[in-house]
Every structure is written in C-alpha cells, then in structure tokens.
Design a binder for these strands. Structure first.
Lengths: 196, 196
DNA sequence: TGACAACGAGACGCAACCGTATCGGTAGGC
DNA sequence: GCCTACCGATACGGTTGCGTCTCGTTGTCA
C-alpha cells in the first residue's frame, strides 16, 4: 500500500478555499468581535463540522486565511532607485486605499497583540512585504549610490510606515503625490550627490 | 433656586472613574472581542445598571475611556530642534514599549475602523499627539532653519510613524538609539546647512 | 441627622456562539 | 457505475452577553 497521507481532495479543496475567503470577508466586515466559527461557516455556506475538521480554533483558521491572502508587492528593478521606490510605494498606497486591506490589517494587528501564532505570522508577512524595498536599497548600496552608514532597515521603516500611519492611525487622506514626496524626502538624506 | 444641572456627585464620580479605568484594562487584556458592558462592570466592581446610567453603549463608554486616558507628550522647547525632537520621540517610544498603550492602540485602531464615533476620536487624539512635534517644526521654519518647501505634516508623519510601525506592524524591537537615528535621518533632508 | 440620589447586586427572558454528534447526500477515484 | 471520503444541515446542552428591572444599601449635602 503506497498510500501516503493524503491532502483533502476534490470537494474538500473547494470547501477549504471557500471557507478561507469567507473568513477574510467576515474579518473585514465585523472585525475580531464578529469573527466566529459560526459566522464564517454561515458566510461560506459550510457546515461548522467542516470548519472544525480543518482548523482546531478560530485562531488557526485566521492564520491560514491571512497567509493565503498575502500578495507580495511586485518586483521592479529598472536600476533607477527613485523611480522604483515610487512605483512600489504607489502600489502599496493604492492597496491601503482600496477597501478590504486596511480594515483587515487593523483587525489582524489587534488580534496579533493577543495571540502569539498570529503575532508571528504578522511579523513574517510584514517581513515579506518589506523585501522588495529592502532589495532595491541593498542594490543601491552595492552600487555606491547611498551614504556609507545607511541602515537599510531603518530606511524601509521610514518609507513604508507613513502609509500605514496615515490610513490606520491618523485617518487622513493620502494624496497621489505622497509616495514621491516620501521617497524624495528620505532619499535626500541617504543618497550621495543629491543637491539640497 | 439656583440649582444648575448637576454633575453626578460624590460616589457617582468614583464609580464613573473606576469604570473608565476598568474599561481600558479590559480592552488591553482582551481586546474588542472581550469588551462588553458585562465584563467592564465585573472588573470595575460596578453594577451593569450603573454603566447603562452613564453610557448608552459600549462604543460611548469606549470613547469616554480613551479620551480620559489621553496624555499629551510633554512640551519641550529648548530652541535646539534636534534635541527637542529626540526628547519627544524618546518619550513616545518609551510609551510604546510600556505595556498597556500599544495593545490599547491596536484594539482602538481596529474598533475605529468600524465605528465612526471611535474613528473621529482616534483622529482627534492623533492630532493632539502630533501637536508638540508640529509646533517645534513650525518654529524651526519660522527661524529659517529648514528648507523653504518643507511640509511639516509630512515630516511629522516620517518622525512618528516608524515607532507605531515597528511596534504594532513589524513586531520588531526599538533600539534605544532609534529616536536619534530617525531624527537625524529626517533632519538631514530638511535642515539647511547640514553636512552630508 | 434626615432625605435622597446614586449605587451594588442580581434576576429576567432573549439571542448568539460554543464544540460535538449524527444524519443523508454527493462528488470523484477506481 | 460502484464506493467511500468528504460534505451540508441540523440538533444538542452549556455558556456568555444583552438590556431592563427591582431591590436594599450607602455616601453626601443641607
């Protein structure tokens, strides 16, 4: 018998995918207070038994759902640091303006404060989201475009953080030229040979 | 009869204060999912009737509680822009490292996404928190220390946002020299006559 | 010291979610 | 075209919060 531990197949997969999508819909709509196995099952048109068959707890379900939803920023590398950064941050700002993502982020951030598994995943997804920015900066350092003691991690913080902050904390608008303004302000202090 | 509309007096005030404190304790401990009139009353050692006497809904209670808890950053103005900014951001980073505040922020940020009254208060409290930073920058502009087209609001974003981001989103540590590093990086691009 | 407003305690019926169990139905592999 | 693993539906008792109500108590001010 060459049977191996088998993934749930056929209909199983469909149910699983439907539930993961429904989980994020519920989370975006009602936040953690409304996130229950019962409500997710209802929205997915699935049985509670099915949910418990796949996930032992709401937390486990949420980990899977958020992980499945993650989409990395596009990889761009034209060699023009400023242009590439503006492209990435514009894509990011646009995601943060679109509807479900920021609301999901808020709910997930709260949940991550109290559940270690969610906290770890939150950190990991953030790390993956930072990667394209980090790579661009690392290459610029390589090329000798940036001042010697530049801390790429800190620079990524300064580039990415204001967008979260404006949307989730300050509840202010994000003008279309904000990515360019942020990039210019940050690059002015780390790029060699920039006139002031 | 010179009787005016009377504040709840004596014992009333004590109960009110106790409930507001308990509300934040519950919120920090269990987040929005655990935030109920019932659980707050329990922790405050108060009757549910008392809560409903003062607040018509959990949302109204939360607005009062968050508003009462707000502590502005200290006002500092030695005339040394860099030193003052570092002082303020160090105080801020310390608050974000201490226990209840960031957890409260996460819960409140999530709640503010779904409740307009909380959203307005969130924006207002953020505005008040930004004020000391904004004032320092405005005075520096006045003194002609910064480049002409500096956008003080954006600069405040860049100064404040990374601390929220590191603690709540990236779940990374905040080294003791982070405030100075952020200030130096930002000032390098907006301050006149800074050597690079 | 007396009167009274605010209080704590807790009971009420209602609704939601919990986690588990048991069905008959159905889609997909053989 | 059968077989079976997976599925949706539904019922269950238990728990928790809801919002309202009624008590008996207690602190405070006149």
């Amino acid at each position: 018998m060459t049977e191996v531990a088998r993934e749930p197949l056929g209909r199983g997969k469909h149910a699983r995918r439907r539930v993961l999508e429904a989980a994020l819909e519920v989370l975006a709509a009602d936040g953690m207070p409304g996130f229950s196995m019962e409500s997710v099952a209802r929205r997915a048109g699935a049985s509670k038994a099915t949910l418990y068959r796949h996930w032992s707890s709401p937390s486990a379900l949420l980990v899977d759902a958020m992980d499945a939803q993650f989409r990395p920023l596009p990889e761009v590398d034209t060699g023009d640091l400023r242009a590439d950064l503006v492209t990435l941050l514009t894509a990011f700002a646009s995601a943060l303006s679109g509807s479900p993502f920021p609301t999901l982020m808020a709910a997930f951030t709260d949940a991550a404060e109290r559940d270690p598994a969610l906290g770890d995943l939150h950190a990991e997804l953030t790390r993956r989201r930072r990667e394209p920015l980090l790579r661009l900066l690392a290459e610029a350092v390589e090329r000798g475009e940036l001042v010697g003691d530049t801390d790429p991690e800190l620079v990524v913080d300064l580039l990415a953080a204001p967008f979260f902050y404006r949307r989730l904390i300050a509840h202010q608008e994000m003008p279309a030229d904000m990515p360019a303004a942020v990039v210019d302000l940050v690059l002015a202090s780390v790029r060699l040979g920039t006139p002031r």
